[in-house]
């Protein structure tokens, strides 16, 4: 699943490790989400959005067929 977690994370100057600690998951999970290899739960998505000060659609929205 494509997403903009990596871009959003870099925009707020966080490393994968820092973001992971902020939301209470492991760095590997953040890495897999950024690569699109893990499908996070809505709760985790919201935690990530809060950590990078963005809304859900800014980080996770993908256009259908796009």
């Amino acid at each position: 699943m494509d997403n903009k977690v990596k871009i959003s994370r870099i925009q707020v100057n966080l490393t994968q490790q820092q973001l992971a600690e902020k939301i209470g998951v492991t760095r590997q999970t953040i890495s897999l989400i950024e690569k699109g290899k893990y499908n996070p739960s809505l709760k985790l998505c919201l935690d990530i959005c809060n950590a990078v000060n963005k809304t859900l659609d800014e980080v996770f929205w993908i256009e259908k067929g796009g």
Binding site: V25, T29, P40
Partner: peptide
């Protein structure tokens, strides 16, 4: 032991 909170690991 620390409790695992990471949903992926759970």
């Amino acid at each position: 032991m620390k409790k695992i909170t990471d949903e992926r690991l759970v």
